[in-house]
Amino acid sequence: MNLQACMTVLFVLLLAQAYANTEKVIFVSPPAVSITSSGPSFEQLHLPHITPKNSSLRLSLPAAFPSEKQSRGLDTWYMLRSLNPSQRYEVRVCWAATQPTNFWLDVYNTSHVFDTPDLIQKLAIFSEAQQTIERPQRTGSEALEESLLFLHVQAAADFFSTNRTLMNSPPAVDVELILDPYLASAFPRSLLPTAVYIVALAVGSWVLSGMIWKRLFSSTNKPHND
């Protein structure tokens, strides 16, 4: 297998499904706080969790057209848990271009949410709607140290249609929420395969160009018979 074929195979192996639209927020995780599993806990909020081990959620998010009461559409809330303190992360929401939607992503530490009436009200409304969804609960009464944040996602439909049904009730948007840690606070870990591919492509191109140049140089310097 020649070098060009190897580069082609490497490129195909790195191909993955890509979404047309992406919105993200970059943040540094806060210091760990003490959490006890006895008494009131974050689990009682019934929020979906995103962690470095389970870093991706695929789901359908409800959306609504902007209004006076909801200028950014509908709210959904998540917990970012088991973070490494003081590490840089980014959270991305990816969705298809066939579902025009505007997204806003914000991360808040727990004290900021609980001290802000508007945020705690929005969180309470969403949490109450999630009560029917059973989520795993922690057991025991031991105190744990954990770095965590609230993730606030707002989705507003961004299209116009002559179909009144669509205008009155926009369909849910299929999205993927991804928590991506940064390596050395420089670039997301998910970009590592792309970086390796670019380096391999650059090295392969340099080697291939050198081989071509040597052949051209040797052919032009061959002695000619009269």
Rank of each mutant, 00 (worst) to 15 (best):
I120N: 11
V28E: 13
P85F: 05
P30E: 09
L83K: 04
T116P: 05
E43D: 15
S29F: 04
K69H: 05
E43Q: 13
L45C: 10
N54K: 12
D118Y: 08
T116C: 11
L80H: 02
S29M: 08
A18M: 09
A97W: 04
R81W: 02
L15P: 00
A20P: 00
V93Q: 07
Q121L: 14
V33K: 11
P31V: 02
A32N: 03
T76Y: 04
K24H: 12
E90Y: 05
P117R: 12
C94T: 12
L119G: 11
Y78A: 04
L13M: 15
K24E: 13
S38L: 08
L15S: 13
N84Y: 06
A18Q: 14
W95Q: 06
A18K: 12
V113T: 08
V93D: 05
N102A: 12
S82K: 15
T98A: 15
H46K: 10
W104N: 11
Y19C: 03
T110G: 08
A20S: 15
T76H: 13
F65E: 00
L14F: 13
I26E: 15
W95S: 09
D118N: 10
I120K: 15
L61G: 01
L105G: 09
W104D: 04
L57N: 02
H112T: 15
M79P: 01
L80M: 03
D75G: 07
R72V: 02
M79E: 11
Q70K: 07
S111Y: 10
R92E: 15
S37N: 08
S37C: 04
A96L: 10
Q121P: 01
E68S: 14
A63N: 00
G73A: 03
Y89F: 07
P66R: 06
S67D: 00
P66A: 08
L83V: 04
H49M: 10
C94L: 15
V91W: 08
F65N: 00
L47K: 03
F42V: 08
N21G: 01
K53G: 04
I50R: 03
E90N: 14
I120Y: 10
N84E: 14
V107Y: 03
Y108P: 04
N21H: 11
P100Y: 11
K24T: 07
S86T: 07
R72I: 01
T101W: 01
L14W: 06
V12Q: 12
G73E: 00
N84H: 09
V25E: 09
V33M: 10
A20W: 02
P85E: 12
I120W: 05
P52H: 07
L105I: 14
E43S: 12
T76K: 09
W77D: 06
A32Y: 03
E43I: 01
S41I: 03
V113M: 06
N84R: 11
N102V: 13
N54V: 04
L61K: 01
S55T: 01
L13T: 06
S82V: 07
W77A: 09
D75F: 12
H49N: 12
S60G: 03
Q121T: 15
P66V: 05
L74Q: 00
H46D: 06
T51P: 03
P85A: 09
N109A: 09
